[in-house]
Each structure stands twice: as structure tokens, then as C-alpha cells.
């Protein structure tokens, strides 16, 4: 997979129906639409409670044309293992099994079953869309909410703890493919899912997903804000393929170039309004140190 997908050769067939219950300007809708194009029809989805449960369709109409198995929060990866077992018994080993969970279902509640499945080496793709809080239930803090962010459970001073580095935790299991992507770069995500399909064993893709309702910005800026997170260097797009780390796409192009100041990104969203200048400065220093490491490689 060296050739990059462009808008023109992206498949036209839609596997997600319009008229679903996602908010207008939802970042998840973009990646779900493009992600299913990459996965293709021969796919079974396993989805824990999340915004995706709402988006994929409630009874009696489903917005998704693929089979979706709705499971409990803690058992996402375990249920995917069960689906794999059932497919093996039916000798349908070509079917792709995809667990698609939110950041809460991945980093907090679902991490033990995901860790177990990675350790067992189950042949499935796990996609985590990271909107940095429990958006579906009303913006409660999660393990991946960044420090200083206002949520309904951290209302005045913002969250006191740091964001959990989930891709690094999963990469520490030594699995063959770990990648990060962003909703603002759907073609990059498409290529990464396509690549993941060619590899066997557990594969993990972490997608940064802006949420207008939870982050406090106008729906029209979903893509702009997603791009800004990458351009400021706060969120970087990379692949860890067979333990080899490589920056990809837009992040790779940033090497040696001047990045936007992270304060600009913080100003665009009302969830960062409790952030002090000192904390902003700290984040900028963390980003600079991280990128110095990338540039010296």
C-alpha cells in the first residue's frame, strides 16, 4: 500500500444512511462514513455504548448497512473475540471483525478486555474514536480528557489529571499495527484502515474526533479544529508498524517547519476557558520537547 487514496478514487458507495441521530457537524459521522468505505461490506461491527450506538441506528431503523453487535461497555474486545470464534466455526475467516468504541469504552471501562485480546493476539481491528470525554451521556470527564478541560464533572477548575496515552499503552503490547488518525484527515484514516486490513493479529487505530457540542464550538468548525490540533503539533498522526514508529501524512510534513502556537487551538473551544496562561505555556513546552525528539531522529 504505497499509493495514496485521493477524493476522486474514494469509493462512492455509502454504507451509512443519512437521517441518523448524530448531532449536526459530528466528527464521528465523518470518520464512520469514510471508515466503513475502507472496511467494505464483508465486515461485522462490535459497538459498546457510545455516540456510535446512537449514530448506527436505534430500533427499528438502522443507519448502518453492516451487521452491528451491541455489547456492554467492558466487553467490547471480548465480544469481538466471540464473534471471531463463531466465524471460525463457520469457516468464514475472510470476514473482518471491527470493534469500534469511544474513548471511555477504550481507555477506561473497556481497557482490560482490549488488553486481554491484544495479549491473546486475536485477529481483529479495534478503532477508538477519541472525543476526549463521555459525550453520549452528557460530557463527563474520561481518561483521555486533557488536563484543564471543563466537563460536567469537572465544572470549575477543569480536569486536574493528565490525558492517558492510549495508543502508547496498546503499542506496549507489542502488536503489529498501531496508528493514530484524525477526523479532519479522512483520507489518511482511509489509508490506515486499508493497511490494517492487510495485516493479521490485533490492530489498533486511535482517531482524534472533534465534538461541537462537547468541546464548545460552532458545528461548522469541526474540520478546522481537527486540523488545528494536528498543525499545532498537539496531536500527531503516526503509525507503529511491526514496532517501527513513523510519523505520517500531515504530521510528517510538519517536521522542520514552524508549528502554530497551541494557544490558538485552545482559544477556539469553550472547554479550555479555565486554562491558565501558565498551563498553556507548559503544554507548549511539552509539545516543543516532543517535536524536538521527532526532529532529532
Amino acid at each position: 500500500m504505497t499509493e495514496k487514496t485521493t477524493i476522486l478514487n474514494l469509493p462512492e458507495e455509502e454504507l451509512v444512511h443519512p437521517g441518523n441521530r448524530a448531532c449536526s457537524g459530528c466528527g464521528l459521522s465523518i470518520i464512520y462514513r469514510i471508515g466503513l468505505k475502507a472496511l467494505g461490506r464483508d465486515t461485522i461491527l462490535v459497538v459498546p455504548p457510545s455516540c456510535l450506538t446512537v449514530l448506527q441506528g436505534l430500533y427499528p431503523i438502522a443507519a448502518t448497512q453492516l451487521p452491528c453487535l451491541n455489547v456492554t461497555f467492558a466487553s467490547t474486545a471480548a465480544a469481538a473475540t466471540g464473534v471471531l470464534g463463531a466465524l471460525r466455526a463457520q469457516k468464514r475467516e475472510k470476514t473482518t471483525v471491527v470493534a469500534w468504541a469511544g474513548d471511555g469504552g477504550t481507555s477506561d471501562i473497556g481497557i482490560q478486555s482490549l488488553s486481554g485480546a491484544c495479549e491473546r493476539g486475536e485477529d481483529f481491528i479495534f478503532i477508538c474514536y477519541d472525543n476526549e470525554a463521555y459525550m453520549n451521556t452528557g460530557v463527563q470527564r474520561s481518561g483521555t480528557t486533557p488536563k484543564g478541560v471543563i466537563t460536567t464533572t469537572t465544572p470549575i477548575r477543569g480536569k486536574l489529571q493528565k490525558k492517558k496515552e492510549v495508543p502508547a499503552i496498546i503499542a506496549a503490547h507489542g502488536i503489529d499495527y498501531v496508528a493514530t488518525a484524525s477526523a479532519a484527515y479522512p483520507l489518511d484514516l482511509y489509508d490506515k484502515i486499508k493497511k490494517a486490513k492487510t495485516i493479521s493479529g490485533p490492530r489498533y487505530i486511535h482517531v482524534h474526533t472533534p465534538c461541537p457540542a462537547g468541546w464548545g464550538f460552532e458545528p461548522r468548525y469541526t474540520v478546522k479544529i481537527g486540523k488545528m490540533a494536528v498543525e499545532t503539533g498537539l496531536y500527531d498522526l503516526y503509525e507503529i508498524e511491526h514496532s517501527k514508529f513513523k510519523l505520517t501524512g500531515p504530521s510528517r510534513k510538519l517536521i522542520g517547519k514552524k508549528r502554530k502556537p497551541v494557544a490558538e487551538y485552545f482559544k477556539t473551544q469553550s472547554r479550555f476557558k479555565a486554562l491558565s496562561d501558565k498551563r498553556t505555556e507548559e503544554v507548549q513546552q511539552e509539545i516543543d520537547a516532543k517535536w524536538e525528539g521527532y526532529e532529532n531522529e
Binding site: L10, P18, S24, R33, P219, T222
Partner: peptide
């Protein structure tokens, strides 16, 4: 067409919008 969250814009010449389901997000 690429960024429309709801897939209501068609990949045709000229592109058309399905107003029945367009949520008006302005992306």
C-alpha cells in the same frame, strides 16, 4: 462530498444536496 458528515452531497457534476436529510452543519 468528502467532509459531509451525513453523506447528503452527491459526487456528481454538478454536486447536489439532499435537503430532506441535510442537518445544516455548514462544514
Amino acid at each position: 462530498w468528502l467532509f459531509c458528515p451525513d453523506g447528503v452531497i452527491t459526487k456528481t457534476i454538478p454536486p447536489t444536496i439532499d435537503y430532506e436529510y441535510c442537518k445544516g452543519c455548514e462544514i
